[in-house]
Design a protein around this nucleic acid. Structure first.
Length: 741
DNA sequence: ATCGATAGAGTTTTT
DNA sequence: CTCTATCGAT
């Protein structure tokens, strides 16, 4: 096994195969390389069988990449190795074990939209006030309960949840079971329950997995933590890789303590830090370090790089979101048409999906090819969801959510009243809707409706028969023909017909591709396909050299890298988001998100914010993000004493720290002052102290130094510090992250 | 039962 | 602004 391309730390992480190991891998420090080499090393040097290895990731893309790279290293098949996402892994285990929990193996996975519509129905059934109890709100609470606790019900009760919430939770769980469906959280939770209630099942899997690897460990939630813990309890060869500075899924239940307390959870664990960054220039890394140094709760890490210097970071203050988009488009044009950049060198990152629209418009107007990841994805298109709903009903006849979606799509003259009648009939017998149709007798519901329902059921059963004789894609084509989907699309809305028909065509093509890539008829294609659809994620569709500019949210960008990155919409209220402004923990998570964004860039980073932005049809003024302010604090010129706006505007671009100020903020300092003034409690106490010359201090980014002079007084006082590393810097005393020693 | 118009509400991030 | 839910007309 050739480990010569690895540095010492990386090599150590590869070779420390026995016992628990925590690899703290900073951004761009080669963690994927370590993971892949480690797996290859286990197999080739230690003679470990591939089927004794479990590698867990968060996205299919990461899993696929890992599998491919290990394959390249070994030059051999790695088919028996479990390299997959947490959710796929759990789905796979449940596919063979779930009957013990009283579900059928044909269970389907409910995505967010399914969950919402089920909850909507429950809210109606329970006669709750839908102004107070919204599906969104409730699904959040339910998910939180399932993530935070092994016993979600008592979590809700002990947490003083409203009795309605508890009632909805119970109804929801009951209905899921009746539909033979699991939501995302159940996928994980049920595996854990399985392990707890049936020790022999746990025994089977923990015997199987001699070596376990977990990527992005900082993003695991409590349930995932327990699953990993149990699986690793026999062999104890567990290697987790993560970076607490990149923990950005706290809102989804990820618990940063999992990584912070790994050494406590696995006594005798080795810890290896990867701190050399191979991705970014010094300029970019510096900016990242400065931003993240404003966070208090973190493991101390110092990322460094050999790539000294680098292109300056470009900060742009746009008039509005169109100006911002226009400039981004222009920069890309410059680089791609007249420079030596390719379109796929570029990524445009933003906090929220809504920001993508304007940017798309401008890219289109300049004929710049791009691709938006996430957002309204292919699988969320109505046409695709319709077809998927049919397939789900074929796979699992109890899937009421799917049933309700398509019972009248295309129109077959079955209206709300008929459906209501059927629902009443079915729920009286606690039966799934499709099953209930078979039980209908004369007089149960209107005769005309009954006939239509029966025809529907017969049609489905006819399609189902085709599975025996036709290939999966052909069954789908057959289905589309039988229900007259194309005619429906034509009749429904003429203007959109072509686009919608294309979606259907594309989807059928996707089904063909998927089927061909499958392992013969080894597994159930339909069930594998539906699982793939349900667990598909935003970045899974990514291909590296697609000749297009990539656009995505900061969350989706984690784990990726690009030569040039635009980080846009750096405005307070947008990024960091409004709802995190007054919560220090949330704010730190936003800051980590900013850190993730900056560290995606290899060579050039563009930052931008708009002075005003159109938001839900209203023009809203916006101040620069505090993260921009934090970056500027490290700059000599922004620390000039209480500057008049005009002075600032004419100041020359300053590149000492690699940040050229194309538009020197008149608003930036003011915004900082406004924020501090309106929320004084946000300001760390030590910032109020007045500094005196000769004092020893520590700056979060520059280290220790001595105070040279203090100019001015009060909020606008400027402190000049000679740092031990030789640098002399000035700071606005009120805002700089300085502590007195 | 279906269609169209109009009012209303809501947006952070996602496996 | 855009998606959705609801209501009234056919």
């Amino acid at each position: 096994m050739d480990l010569s391309l690895l540095n010492d730390r990386q090599r150590e992480a590869v070779k420390t195969t026995e016992g628990p190991l925590l690899v703290l891998a900073g951004a761009g420090s080669g963690k994927t390389r370590v993971l892949t080499h480690r797996i290859a090393y286990l197999i080739q040097e230690n003679g470990v069988a591939p089927w004794n290895i479990l590698a867990l990731t968060f996205t299919n893309k990461a899993a696929g990449e890992m599998r491919e790279r290990v394959g390249n290293l070994l030059g051999a098949g790695v088919n028996d190795m479990w390299v997959m996402t947490f959710h796929s892994c759990c789905a796979r285990i449940l596919r063979s074990e779930i009957e013990q929990l009283g579900y059928e193996r044909t269970f389907v996975i409910y995505d967010d939209a399914d969950q919402q519509s089920l909850l909507k129905k429950i809210i109606r059934d329970l006669n709750l006030n839908d102004k107070i109890f919204t599906p969104r709100d409730l699904s959040g609470k339910i998910s939180e309960a399932k993530n935070q606790s092994l016993d979600a019900l008592s979590y809700l009760r002990d947490g003083y949840a409203q009795k309605e919430v508890v009632a909805v939770f119970q109804a929801y769980q009951r209905q899921l079971k009746q539909c033979n469906a699991l939501d995302f959280d159940d996928l994980l939770l049920f595996v854990l329950q399985l392990f707890e209630r049936f020790p022999e099942v746990l025994e089977k899997y923990r015997k199987k997995f001699h070596y376990i690897l977990v990527d992005e460990y900082q993003d695991t939630n409590l349930v995932q933590y327990h699953i990993v813990h149990k699986l690793a309890s026999l062999h104890r060869n567990i290697c987790v890789v993560g970076d607490d500075d990149q923990s950005i899924y706290g809102w989804r239940g990820a618990d940063i303590r999992n990584i912070l307390e790994f050494e406590k959870d696995f006594p005798g664990a080795s810890v290896i830090r990867l701190e050399q960054n191979y991705r970014s220039t010094e300029v970019i890394l510096n900016a990242a370090n400065i931003v993240i140094s404003n966070n208090r709760s973190r493991k101390k890490k110092e990322l460094w790089t050999q790539q000294k210097g680098g292109e300056p970071i470009d900060v742009y203050e746009a008039m509005d979101e169109r100006d911002e988009a226009n400039r981004i488009a222009n920069r890309i044009l410059e680089g791609a048409r007249y420079g030596d950049r390719r379109y796929d060198d570029y990524a445009i990152l933003y906090r929220t999906h809504v920001q993508s629209r304007v940017i798309e418009m401008y890219l289109q107007s300049y004929d710049i090819p791009y691709r938006v990841y996430g957002g309204l994805s292919f699988f969320q298109r109505a046409e695709v969801k319709d077809i998927v709903a049919y397939l789900r009903l074929l796979q699992n006849s109890a899937d009421d959510v799917a049933f309700l979606r398509i019972i009248n799509v295309p129109r077959r003259g079955i209206g709300d009243s008929s459906v209501d009648a059927l629902q009443a009939f079915a729920s009286a017998r606690t039966q799934p809707l499709l099953h209930a149709i078979m039980q209908l007798q004369d007089g149960d519901i209107a005769k005309a409706a009954r006939e239509k329902f029966s025809a529907f059921a017969e049609m489905l059963s006819d399609v189902y028969m085709q599975f025996g004789v036709k290939s999966f894609p052909d069954v789908v084509e057959y289905l589309l023909g039988v229900i007259g989907y194309d005619a429906y699309l034509q009749a429904d809305r003429k203007e959109n017909y072509e686009a919608r028909a294309d979606i259907v065509k594309e989807f059928v093509g996707y089904i063909r591709e998927f089927t061909e890539a499958m392992d013969e008829t080894k597994v159930d294609v339909l069930s594998a396909f539906l699982e793939n659809v349900a667990l598909f994620s935003a970045t899974d569709q990514m291909d590296d050299q697609n000749g297009r500019v990539s656009m995505m949210t900061l969350h989706s960008a984690k784990g990726l890298e690009f030569p040039v990155v635009f980080l846009c919409g750096l405005e307070d209220g947008l990024f960091p988001s409004m709802q995190s402004a007054y919560d220090p923990e949330k704010l730190e998570e936003e800051r980590r998100l900013c850190y993730v964004g900056i560290t995606r860039a290899r060579q050039k980073l563009y930052l931008s914010h708009a002075k005003q932005r159109m938001l839900y049809g209203k023009i809203t003024p916006a101040m620069p993000s505090r993260f921009l302010t934090e970056l500027e604090e490290a700059l000599p010129e922004s620390s000039k004493p209480a500057p008049k706006p005009t002075q600032l505007k004419t100041a020359p671009p300053q590149q000492a720290f690699g940040i050229s100020m194309h538009a020197l903020k008149t608003g930036t300092q003011q915004s900082a002052i406004r924020h501090e003034a309106s929320k004084p409690e946000m300001k760390p106490v030590e910032h109020d102290v007045s500094y005196t010359p000769g004092q020893r201090v520590r700056h979060k980014a520059f280290g220790e130094g001595t105070v040279l002079a203090v100019n001015g007084g009060g909020a606008s006082s400027i402190v000049e510090i000679a740092f031990d590393n030789g640098a002399n810097k000035k700071f606005a005393a009120a805002f700089a992250p300085i502590e007195v020693l």
